[in-house]
Each structure stands twice: as structure tokens, then as C-alpha cells.
């Protein structure tokens, strides 16, 4: 009967463990909340890295601009997230335009390195009579850490730049209305790697940490922040959590169950009844 007890205990433990892990995954900061509708975000855009407007994943940022402007937004991406940046440009009335134009989004990481789009229409041509143009760029999955020589995307700020890549000179300066939003999807532990950045790739983080240490206000997130600083909801995850914990733990449980089963198979039904118990 010991076997049965052990089996029961193992099953219970496994159930509890998996349930706990599920809850942990749900609570985990790396689990992103990306409402598909898109909450209203900022209505302005920056015009340089320094003045980029912070926007959160799931928010829909809008801006009124002129054709030819370089518009910048900055959004925080955490490890394990795969972001898709979408932009839509409402072009000026066709009657006032002179030629077709090409629009493009570029995404840069916190070190201002250009990040590749794995798929999506990163640049799109708008015909002379088109009313709007849609762009999209899906980034690679953000890794918690990488070698210094690698260009892997790392947790931190990501800059989105939207501009007209090709435009007739006559069409410069005409009013456009742009919309930008980013959605993130959690890729789970498939891309979890060992090693993590001590601090996310957020420009100016040295000054911020110093100011924080000076004021001694740990944990109290300031209301006034420099323009180019954003954090994911719930802060940076630090890259220590991944669903690999659950997989490995579940594997351990299964191994234990299999071990108990194997033991019971070869050991037989315990002490034979005709054998007297030991002294």
C-alpha cells in the first residue's frame, strides 16, 4: 500500500506544481497584455531619438504630421516578447499629390541598432491616388541576453521611426495622419537563454539609476520621466522566468512516477504473506 500512497502523493504534488506553474505563468510580468482593440495612446510623435514619444504595447498612438517628417516613438519590450509594429498613414487628398510615394517603418533597439523585420510590409508604396498605406514589422523575439558581438534583440527601449522613404519634392510638407501600434506575443521558453542583462537597454539609464540611488526612493516609480523612457507594465522581468521551469519540473514528476511504476513492476507485491515480518 505504500506504493499507492506514494503514487497518490506524487500525483498530488505534480498537480499542485503544474497548477502553481500555470498561475505563475499568468502572473509573470513577461506575459504581456495586448488588447486587440488598442487603447488610445499619445497623440503626438517625436522627431528624433531624443524626443521620441513613449508608447506602450497595445496602445494606439496617433499623430498629425507633414509628409517628409521623421516620426519617432519608443516602446518597452521585455524578454520573450515578439512584437509586431503596425502603422497606418492616411495620405493627403489625392488631388493635391503629384506622384506615388513609399513609406517605411524602421525599428531600432535601445542602442540605436537597426533591428530586422522578420516579416511584414516594412515599406510599402502608395499609388498616386491611394487614400492610405499600411505598414507592419514583426521583430525577432527579444532574448534576455546575448553576446556583445551579437545583434540579437535585447530587453529595453525600442524606437519606431516612420517616414516617407521616397516622395516627390512637390509633395513634401503636406499634412498626413499616422497611427502606430505595437502588439506583443509571448513566445514562451523556446527562446529563453542563459545570461541576462543587468539593466535593460534603456538610453540614459545610468543617470536614472544614479538619481534613484541619490533620492533613495527605491520602488517608487516617478511620475515625471524623461521622454525616452518607458517600462513594461509591472517592470522588467529580468529574464529569469521561462516556461522551461515548468517543462523541466513536469519532466521530473513524470520521471518519478515512471520510477515508482518501474519499482512496483519489478519489486512485486511487497513482502510475501507467508514470510514472517522481520524481528
Amino acid at each position: 500500500m505504500r506504493t499507492v500512497r506514494m503514487l497518490t502523493a506524487a500525483a498530488l504534488a505534480a498537480g499542485g506544481l503544474l497548477a502553481g506553474a500555470g498561475a505563475a505563468a499568468a502572473d509573470s510580468p513577461s506575459a504581456s497584455a495586448s488588447p486587440s482593440g488598442g487603447a488610445a495612446g499619445p497623440t503626438e510623435a517625436g522627431t528624433a531619438f531624443r524626443t521620441a514619444t513613449p508608447v506602450k504595447p497595445g496602445q494606439r498612438a496617433t499623430a498629425e504630421a507633414s509628409t517628409g517628417d521623421y516620426l519617432y516613438w519608443v516602446l518597452p519590450l521585455d524578454s520573450g516578447q515578439r512584437a509586431t509594429v503596425k502603422a497606418s498613414v492616411k495620405l493627403p487628398p489625392a488631388a493635391s499629390r503629384h506622384a506615388a510615394s513609399t513609406w517605411r517603418i524602421d525599428v531600432y533597439d535601445g542602442l540605436r541598432r537597426r533591428q530586422a523585420c522578420t516579416y511584414g510590409a516594412q515599406s510599402a508604396a502608395a499609388a498616386k491616388d491611394a487614400a492610405s498605406v499600411e505598414l507592419s514589422c514583426t521583430l525577432r523575439t527579444v532574448r534576455p541576453g546575448a553576446e556583445p558581438w551579437a545583434h540579437d534583440p535585447l530587453p529595453g527601449s525600442y524606437y519606431v521611426r516612420l517616414t516617407a522613404a521616397e516622395v516627390a519634392k512637390e509633395d513634401l510638407g503636406q499634412p498626413v495622419r499616422v497611427e502606430v501600434s505595437a502588439e506583443t506575443r509571448d513566445t514562451g521558453g523556446a527562446f529563453a537563454v542563459d545570461g541576462a542583462l543587468a539593466q535593460p537597454l534603456v538610453p540614459g539609464i545610468t543617470a536614472r539609476l544614479a538619481a534613484e540611488a541619490e533620492s533613495g526612493a527605491a520602488g517608487s516609480a516617478g511620475k515625471d520621466r524623461p521622454a525616452a523612457v518607458g517600462e513594461p507594465d509591472g517592470g522588467w522581468s529580468g529574464g529569469r522566468w521561462s516556461d522551461r521551469w515548468v517543462w523541466t519540473a513536469a519532466g521530473g514528476v513524470l520521471a518519478a512516477l515512471a520510477g515508482v511504476f518501474g519499482y512496483s513492476v519489478t519489486r512485486g507485491r511487497g513482502r510475501p504473506p507467508h514470510v514472517p515480518p522481520r524481528g
Binding site: I205, D224, P226
Partner: peptide
């Protein structure tokens, strides 16, 4: 799990400063 959660829930950088 607990360790991972604790580490994950408390952000590495609680930012302030302007």
C-alpha cells in the same frame, strides 16, 4: 518557481528621475 517569481515580480529597475 518561487525564486523565479520573486525575481521576476520585483523589477530590476524601478525607475525615477527626470
Amino acid at each position: 518557481l518561487l525564486a523565479a517569481l520573486a525575481a521576476g515580480l520585483f523589477p530590476a529597475s524601478a525607475a525615477a528621475g527626470e
